[in-house]
Design a protein around this nucleic acid. Structure first.
Lengths: 334, 334
DNA sequence: TCGAAGTATGCGAACGTTTGCATCGTAGCC
DNA sequence: GGCTACGATGCAAACGTTCGCATACTTCGA
């Protein structure tokens, strides 16, 4: 293993100079610097991360905590975060908490001491999790809390766009198929939809309640949605929309003929299913990238306390929305 | 920050004893051990990973290199690997190489020195990548090479199952829609299908060329598949199957009426699309788990050189396969 | 020409842990 | 009862880096 000592010996300088030439080049005379870097390259020197962490206190790695890596939403965020971390020359520890609050707290407690900062995606137990951070900087994704910086998307703008679209098609009664009760994101989407509806005096929102943020959640909700008399539904995420469509189809009902559906996130399943989903697109990789940038700024103490504005959400119209049935089908009331 | 020194002082022993009590409990008398562990817990002691890495040479972390984290296949593998690493008390660095061979080599070179071992999934440049490992142990996933241990799935059994299924439905001419030319996995699937066909004297395989392992790859292949006169197709993975179905539908052709399609992997998109895909299921999380177990055995020098047998592949029949059209539709020949 | 100021480099301690070796005490054996 | 042997614990070095401080050398002004 090549160490600073080897490089120093070959380059004919002291190890301090080697260290400085590589870490703080401006503090070393140009010719020396060049000699050192050349030798280092030739010898294939790679600084021992552990040693520099130990001495300098910086680990050169960030941590990413997500509830479910197999969820296309978090997979994309993770991909963006990883790419950006690499661009910053940082490693990325990834932990999947399996939607488990205790595991999440443990993960953070374990990760905090060995990273420079943490990216917490949709934490399930934000208070305890933040408590486990110690003094480690962190950035929240999809959640706001305390004094921690956060990356959120513009639910307000998104929901307004969705509602305008549905209203333009002629819908006047729109159901919201919500995600987990503990989800901060769900609360925001819900509120944003109500807020958007308040702008118009002829649109009504039917809030429906906590469902699992997976396909099965949509299946569970489907009958209730249809019975509610709504002619359109906005769902917590794309997976829920898929489940909704599936269950309706099983009952012989067609989307968008009998019900219009708007998903959320534009995770890549939205375009795959049939009908392809109208959905609110978030640039998920950008969420990861922005989170890492924010975290790096924080770690570097270049921490401008300034919060990043909510990331844009854009309505993507595909085939799951259409005008409501001319004469609403007769429906049982619940 | 709580160190061994603090624990030692409070427990009234030396730091060596503390270290031993925590790392090699059997080398410390029971009462002492208990006192130390109690104090450590009370003080909230967490060993400094960097320091122990530096001294002991073990990093307590593994590395996972995947071509695309947003691909449901790798996302699931990563999820399994992460969970198992955690169970072993190890961290997991994840790197997404974006299907780029150079990035892959760099990633491995950077990761190798700061991890105890690497899990290489479907490497794109296996020779150079293995070269970059240095002496670091590694396990290959979906690839076999050199003397490295590897985790592979039973393509042979899977393809035989798929072909038996199709043959039982009445298909006699089956296309294989292949993945990237550089993919070891593709070569194996291709060979396995031919091998399976050789068992019957009435089934013919039409091998089709290198396509991208994404939805668009399936779209590209669709017209060729149909023109080939095959009544069924087996695809490199589920995404390719989805693209195939899409393009055929756009031409007014129906799956499974006009063509039967068998996907590969049973990534979760297989069940989402319509028609739900008949596919060859691999327990993807188990791939990740097994890979980590194998790697841990290797790292612990408990390295039984024994290779893990190929993981089982199981045919899941859904709605994308059916008997071939009674009278094959007239088709242009290419 | 001398001193001050500044720049480039070297010296050595420190980070927190693990571990080989030394030490101490005690139990077992003859 | 003395000697051996072994188990439990302590001491101190070492891992490879960073960084405060000291030193040597250069440059400039008076």
């Amino acid at each position: 293993m090549v160490t600073v000592h080897d490089v120093a010996r070959v380059a004919g300088v002291s190890i301090s100079t080697v260290s400085r030439a590589l870490a703080t080049p401006e503090r070393v005379a140009a010719p020396t610097r060049e000699r050192v870097t050349t030798v280092a390259r030739e010898l294939g020197y790679r600084p021992n991360r552990a040693a520099s962490v130990l001495r300098a206190g910086r680990s050169g790695a960030l941590g990413l905590v997500v509830p479910d890596l197999a969820n296309p939403y978090f997979a994309s965020v993770a991909k963006g975060a990883q790419a950006r971390a690499r661009e910053h020359g940082l490693g990325l520890f990834v932990v999947d908490t399996d939607e488990d609050a205790d595991l999440e707290v443990d993960a953070v407690a374990g990760l905090a001491p060995q990273t420079d900062g943490l990216l917490l995606c949709s934490p399930r137990a934000v208070d305890r999790t933040v408590g486990a951070l110690g003094a480690r900087p962190a950035v929240l994704v999809n959640q706001e809390a305390d004094g921690l910086p956060s990356i959120v998307v513009d639910h307000r703008g998104g929901m307004l766009g969705a509602l305008e679209h549905l209203r333009a098609l002629g819908h006047r009664r729109v159901a919201y198929v919500g995600g987990p009760a503990s989800s901060w994101s769900d609360a925001r989407r819900r509120a944003a939809l109500h807020e958007a509806a308040a702008r118009f005096d002829d649109v009504e929102v039917v809030p429906l309640g906590a469902y699992r943020p997976q396909v099965e959640g949509g299946r569970s909700a489907a009958d209730l949605v249809y019975a509610s008399g709504a002619t359109a539904a906005v769902t917590f995420n794309d997976l829920v929309a898929v489940g909704l469509v599936e269950r309706l189809a099983a009952r012989g009902l067609d989307v968008p003929r009998d019900l219009s559906v708007v998903g959320c996130d534009d995770s890549y399943v939205a375009a795959l299913v049939s009908p392809p989903l109208t959905t609110l697109r978030t640039d998920l990789r950008n969420v990861g990238r922005t989170g890492v940038d924010r975290l790096v700024a924080l770690v570097g103490a270049r921490g401008d306390g300034s919060d990043v504005p909510p990331l844009a959400v854009e309505l993507v119209v595909r085939d799951s929305t259409a005008p409501p049935p001319a004469r609403p089908a007769a429906r049982p009331t619940v």
